[in-house]
Design a protein around this nucleic acid. Structure first.
Length: 279
DNA sequence: TGGATAATAT
DNA sequence: CATATTATCC
């Protein structure tokens, strides 16, 4: 008797942070396309910016970014985007993004959980099949690793304090609950559910560069949110929810809805996806 | 599509 | 320099 997923979609949405609940993140919430559309310098431009390594963290406002790209956008050769090669920077898989990923896979079923389908189901703007495929690969490894080690008990959905699992993987993957069906492949009853395509929040691609901040488990960021509004952006006004769950600096603590801000260091741009309520 | 490998970041 | 994470190639 597995919980019927009759209302899985409902739960799914529940798990997602609503735009209203999201915290305003003053980041470079601009997608390459959008940037181009606005005729502004491409945030993804290979601009050799100086590495602004701000040693200090955003102690004042953890959830507010220190700066925007407004100033650094215009740099030498920024106006000229040789072939606006929309070369997106490395995609940063945030726990939430992973959550969506896992949910999509779970809802699709292992059988249909192919990169293409997952990507489509996720409806994340900016996400490419390659991104999903790459991550899916890692995810599979994680599941495999876990299956091999967590065989005791069919209870099976536990996965965290395993001494065999790689710490790095756990960190990210443990952030999102792994459906039980994942640990046991289609056995006899292998049927998936309907290919329902949810159209809740949409995720946009954000390309920003931040000096630090990335992990979720650490000090609890004070919810002193700074509210910033972007001058432009009419379609994707997104806000990020910076919820940090950190406890005593110990590991073994998993976060549930942690949203980590992607940060890029020195001239490196990071691509971040954030949920938006637009479709 | 999936897996291995390279590249890059931390 | 080692490890981790993502992109890319086949």
């Amino acid at each position: 008797m597995r919980e019927e997923d009759s209302n899985w979609f409902a739960k799914w949405e529940e798990e997602f942070p609503k735009p209203e609940e999201l915290m305003p993140l003053s980041q470079t919430l601009i997608t390459p396309d959008l940037a181009i559309a606005f005729d502004i310098p491409n945030p993804t431009s290979p601009n050799p910016q100086n590495k602004q390594q701000t040693p200090l963290v955003q102690s004042s406002q953890p959830n507010s970014s220190a700066e925007f790209e407004s100033g650094e956008l215009n740099g030498p050769g920024c106006g000229d985007e040789p072939a606006r090669t929309l070369k997106r920077p490395r995609l940063v898989w945030t726990p939430q993004l992973h959550k969506r990923f896992v949910d999509s896979v779970a809802h699709l079923g292992i059988k249909n959980a192919v990169p293409k389908t997952i990507m489509q189901l996720m409806s994340v703007d900016g996400l490419t099949r390659e991104n999903v495929a790459s991550h899916l690969q890692k995810y599979r490894l994680y599941l495999k690793r876990m299956q091999g080690l967590s065989n005791s008990g069919s209870g099976g959905s536990n996965a965290q304090s395993l001494s065999g699992a790689d710490p790095a993987m756990d960190n990210l993957f443990a952030s999102s609950p792994v459906p039980a069906h994942f640990l046991h492949p289609a056995r006899g009853n292998s049927d998936q559910f309907m290919p329902f395509v949810p159209h809740h929040h949409h995720m946009g691609v954000v390309v920003g560069h931040h000096p630090h901040v990335q992990q979720q488990y650490r000090q609890f960021g004070s919810p002193g949110n700074g509210h910033f509004e972007h001058p432009f952006l009419s379609r994707q006004q997104s806000q990020q929810q910076v919820q940090r769950m950190g406890t005593s600096g110990h590991n073994g603590n998993y976060v549930e809805d942690v949203d980590s801000a992607a940060t890029g260091a020195n001239g490196r741009k990071v691509l971040t996806l954030f949920p938006t309520g637009d479709d």
